[in-house]
Amino acid sequence: MVKVQARQVERHFFVRNSLGKKERLGVLSGFDLDIYEGEFLSLVGPSGCGKTTFLNILAGLDDYDSGEILVDHKRLEKHSFDRGMVFQGYALFPWRTVRKNLEAGLEIRGLSPAERRRISRRYLELVGLLAFENHYPHQLSGGMRQRVAIARVLAYEPGLLLMDEPFAALDAQTREVLQIELLKIWEADKKTILFITHSIDEAILLSDRVAFMSSAPGRIQDIITIDLPRPRTEEIRNSAEFAGIRRRVSSLLRNDFLKNMSFGGYL
């Protein structure tokens, strides 16, 4: 079952060039992508290839100029209760405690305070932050803040999770811990996730499929199925299969790079 279908999506901006003239900058062009229900799909590509633009369009934060995007076989709507987005910069409300942050999405859906409390408790427990429910975001480390942000989105159970390089601002160790935590949480209820990252290793570890984008114009170049067994654990990083997939991806990207000089930036 297909959750998201993007067909020939186009998005361009007008920017001023060095001569001060307005110039058309194509960000997405001929962008096609299917995301299946319950799938973990990563979108990888060089900076400026338009991957965040596509994510923002799906999130209802940006428009597209032409093409078609269907979510659950219906035209994408700007307003939806069925989406959740995790930002690289956490986007927590600094005046709210951890628990109140978690309850924001539930509040928007009009749940009663008792109901909100019950749900927020469950998700605080899930991310191991129950002891910090009355702390403010600035009293937490970056890793804890991102746990809160993830729990805040999970708490209202959206059908489509959008993650924009959620672990990019964290130190390497925290990032590895959170990757495994995200795997555990996702493998428990298999929500559809579109995950943006710069890191090929991160994409391979987490995803069912990895879509590679080219830049200028931004479109899908390759899609690779990651057939590592699930549930995946920490040890999989050191397995022969992981190394094999990594090698395959690298050689594929290198060939693409030779064929198409515009593709690169992350090899």
Partner: peptide, 16 residues
């Protein structure tokens, strides 16, 4: 703006 964007993706109304 990231706070406003984040609230939008949660489905928040303009009033909220």
């Amino acid at each position: 703006t990231i706070l406003v964007r984040s609230a939008k993706t949660m489905g928040a109304s303009r009033a909220y």
